[in-house]
Design a protein around this nucleic acid. Structure first.
Lengths: 377, 377
DNA sequence: TTGATTTGCGGTATCGTTACCGCACTGGTA
DNA sequence: TACCAGTGCGGTAACGATACCGCAAATCAA
């Protein structure tokens, strides 16, 4: 015998299935005595109500789909963790689906989710509009986009889907201010070649705007700070070229739009004899776990992944209750670590002169300044 | 109107629900003409069969639970990815559950899984026996343990649950052989303080045994190669102490049982002025993505995570079909990278003399020797 | 032409659970 | 005694899909 059913419990307790159901859900009228007896039988039989049958009746499956590109990417893993945690707090089950950026797989997975009659979905939208996600929307399933703002759909707009993502401005502003205070005047942003990614494009735009707030950083040589090399991972030639370009420009500090690029370039810089934090200061987007473990520890612009998970769940819950929900941009935070030091040949940075030992993993968090989100004067 | 049902399709196609069901499953006798018409209506209505209702009837839910300690750990994320991928190939859905090593959460999650009437489960067992997993077993649900061999249960034995894990021997043998060939004679294993972890204990035992195969490596000073410091992460004092101990012992090469420790210590070593791969050679367990990106790239003993996922799924499928399934140990592989070089002051290592540039990310894979798994002469 | 077989399809019980209806019994009031 | 409200519980119809039974019509053999 595999699973015990409500009928088995009823038989053994000498009551009807209705009574067992009442004992389970604390609904309707039932005597204390009967309830205790039924509960005891439930314990004895290790009975667990069949959530499939239950949800068929109630029209709610208590399940939410989470669609991400790749669970192996530690950023998305963090995201999945916080979303799952938050949903669990609301007695909702998370169905994690890794679409691998493959439309056919996404199709299959969304089909599975629809088959399970999920109550809602949290989706990391792919760069190109996804027909699979459109299917979710057409079914009227509440959807929240997370992490990325999708480009306008084929039918003109992204619809009324709320987006929860990170605003790079606050973090970039703090980072650039810190670099400026440390005497850096030539700061270069290194963005990927993925210029079809809205996220990277925005980071570049905001970087330029924030840089221009400091007149002495806006000389012609750094006017176009974006370097877009043929940025395939693991390319030795590319890394060498990057180092040459930085030297030529007289760059003393770099900001990486993509954490993976930072990790790779790190080795190249060290291999070229540069001491990170002294000869070259370095800031990366995304606070990966290893960044605080490495020596020197890496300064980052953090996305507050855990909050993003919590907020997206809250937004989804609103939608599921039929309430209105608005898009929300979370502040990014600049976290200063050892990889940022005073600019070489500069009188600045008295607070941390060269050679001063810094505690490993020591953090100095610089919160992004609060303020309006998006509307510039 | 939310979801279309089989009845909606039947009405619209002018047939009975039985006929629609036949068109869906290609079962029973149905004319080509009718099937096409029904299929077209299914397209029009974007109908997706309700897998809950379907599975209620068939006694199979087509869902498998995956119980892991933490999805944020990139090792488990890799594992989850390969398991999910492999299950998807067999039209099975994966329900990823992160137990956080918290028994109460594990209880809740297993309860959910039972409520969904999962067809099977793949479980990374916790160090201590888990009552939640016992519940799965008592329900007669097929279970496969993965990655860790659980200690004997409270009732004497682990039962007839197959285990799919990694055999550290092949990788350690290759690693030690390579280190020996490079002239290293003092090799130290750095294991965590978690001596209640069977995995770490075994790695230590095997390390000692493999080391003793080389008489010139087994002098009294390295007889007890395990260092067990108060190994809390982020402790500066600990890292300094580690460096001192290594210097005192004359260690020229270290092997880390835990990848996280390797990452942390890496910075300390470099901070102490040591050049990894020249002054000190370094090998770590687990092939994390960053290890091949760092400079110098880190030599590792890899667990073949993708194969582990595939094999555990295959094992589970056997159990689900009612067939017998045996435990299996997968070979670990030694992957040599830049972090291993000739021992300082040694004539060995002619193939890679000091100073010879090594290509970034250049791999030289040394397969562990095949052989019997576990039975020593 | 008759009987047997095959083909195509509809009706219905069933999976496990909950919501609703309604019955029997108790106890209080007129 | 008759009436009524309240309590505790059982019976049953859904939820959506499938498997089985069985009925017509078509096809075939004799």
């Amino acid at each position: 015998m595999a699973y015990a059913t409500i009928r088995d419990v009823a038989r053994r307790a000498g009551v009807s299935v209705s009574t067992v159901s009442r004992a389970l859900n604390d609904s309707g009228r039932i005597s204390q005595e009967t309830r205790d007896r039924v509960r005891q039988v439930i314990e004895e039989l290790q009975y667990v109500p069949d959530s499939r049958a239950r949800s068929m009746h109630s029209l709610h499956s208590q399940a939410v789909g989470l669609l991400i590109p790749d669970i192996r990417n530690s950023y998305f893993a963090d995201l999945a963790y916080s979303v799952q945690h938050e949903l669990l707090r609301h007695d909702l089950q998370t169905l994690i689906c890794t679409a691998d950026d493959r439309p056919d797989q996404e199709r299959t997975l969304v089909g599975n989710l629809l088959g399970q009659h999920i109550d809602g979905a949290i989706v990391v939208p792919s760069p190109s509009p996804s027909p699979a996600v459109d299917r979710l929307l057409r079914q009227g399933i509440p959807v929240v986009y997370i992490d990325r703002t999708p480009s306008a759909g084929p039918d003109g707009q992204t619809g009324r889907v709320p987006v929860v993502d990170a605003d790079p401005r606050s973090g970039l502003r703090s980072a650039i201010a810190d670099l400026h205070a440390q005497g850096h005047r030539r700061v270069t942003l290194i963005t990927g070649s993925l210029e079809d990614s809205d996220t990277l494009r925005e980071r570049r735009r905001v970087f330029e705007r924030e840089l221009s707030r400091f007149p002495d950083m806006s000389d012609p040589q750094t006017q176009d700070p974006g370097i877009r090399l043929g940025w395939e991972p693991g390319s030795t030639a590319r890394n060498a070229r990057l180092a040459a370009v930085l030297k030529e420009r007289g760059t003393t500090a770099v900001v990486f739009s993509r954490s993976q690029d930072a990790i790779e370039a790190l080795g190249t810089f060290q291999g070229a004899g540069w001491v990170i934090g002294r000869d070259l200061s370095l800031v990366s987007f995304d606070d990966l776990p290893i960044f605080s473990l490495l020596t020197p520890s890496i300064s980052v612009i953090s996305q507050q992944v855990d909050r993003m998970g919590a907020v997206s769940v809250a937004t989804l819950l609103r939608l599921m209750k039929g309430e209105e929900a608005r898009s929300l941009r979370l502040e990014t935070r600049y976290i200063r670590r050892q990889s940022v030091g005073p600019s070489p040949g500069s009188a600045a940075g008295v607070t941390a002169p060269p050679g001063t030992p810094v505690l490993p993993n020591g953090r100095r968090v610089c919160k992004g300044q609060p303020g309006g989100t998006g509307n510039d004067p």
